[in-house]
Write a protein that binds this DNA or RNA. Sequence first.
DNA 1: GTCTATATCGCGATAGAC
DNA 2: GTCTATCGCGATATAGAC
Lengths: 200, 200
Amino acid sequence: MSLTTKEKILKEAATLFSELGYKATSVRKIASKVGIRESALYNHFKNKEEIFLTIADEIFVTPIQISQEEIEKEAKRGKAFLNRFVTQYKLLTFDKHSEKMFRLLLIELFANKALRERFINEFHQKNIKLLSQAFFIMMQNDLIRSNDPILIAYEFLSVLFYIRFEITLLRFDNKSTASLATQMEKHVDFFWESIKKQNC
Amino acid sequence: MSLTTKEKILKEAATLFSELGYKATSVRKIASKVGIRESALYNHFKNKEEIFLTIADEIFVTPIQISQEEIEKEAKRGKAFLNRFVTQYKLLTFDKHSEKMFRLLLIELFANKALRERFINEFHQKNIKLLSQAFFIMMQNDLIRSNDPILIAYEFLSVLFYIRFEITLLRFDNKSTASLATQMEKHVDFFWESIKKQNC
DNA sequence: GTCTATATCGCGATAGAC
DNA sequence: GTCTATCGCGATATAGAC
């Protein structure tokens, strides 16, 4: 619990940036929350931007990773793979720090081209690639009906993102997200029924 | 093409707000684009916030409306209703002004509580209500399998929103959205196959 | 490493001449 | 209705004492 001044700065700045955005967060406010003067802050960081960039790097640090081998193994299990994916997506959505970083990303998305590109690559493309690989394997194993794996991946991911987006909005105003917490599981059930091989 | 000064202010301010956000758009920049001094601007608006609020009102002005009667009539046509809905959603997504207003909404969403509430009500709830009514009618008419209409509405809308979100991001950097333009139609096809009554 | 003091800037907004 | 001039403020950032 005993943080260095530098760590305290990053902690308070992350909170402020993720609530007010880059521009509206002043060096003054950060210093005030830390309990030091603005000038003292410049002993730890070159300028405001350096503080922001240090924090922004965390946005794309995903604690959860699935290896290529795991995809191939897990995808053969069909719906169980989707459930596992959603469980991890839910953890990210409800984890306090991940929530903060996701909000920061959304707030700064149109102000920062680098963030936009990393969003497309790491939040969209990476997930689409992973999911379409899994759906392709499910088709090979005759678990789901034949279709474009990328289209299916798109359909599956979109709903999760939308729910996360809504949850992030509601939580910012301390509103209840109870109904949305189960929405992701309902999505897996509905989706699996849509794509699975029919036996009729 | 001959705009009054007040109209010019609104036009230039809308562009700036939708690119930089409220805070980063200065009265100075607006006046400069219009071709007048800042002080002259105050002859038309009380202050910066009044300009913003005038523009923000447009965000929720939807040119397209479907009446209750039309829903009941159109929903009976099943997939044709979904195609019509998506056609209108696509028009909004690719219309220059609507795109600008949507971006403004996304940029200011976490800075403005009123916008968040109107987003939930008018972009989410309103569409979910309309769609779930339509799906309910489709179930009554035995066009689609029995299920929770709200769940299905959620699944249908989420994908459209996600595609619109991505298109808005890509267009901001003048990147191609060609593949996404057809993605919405593919969504209808995929979705209809998922929910329609099977005859097997 | 923190402080006080200060430089410099851009911001929103107003007063008053034309 | 537009201009010049100006005010007061809060912002980022630096210099130099302790």
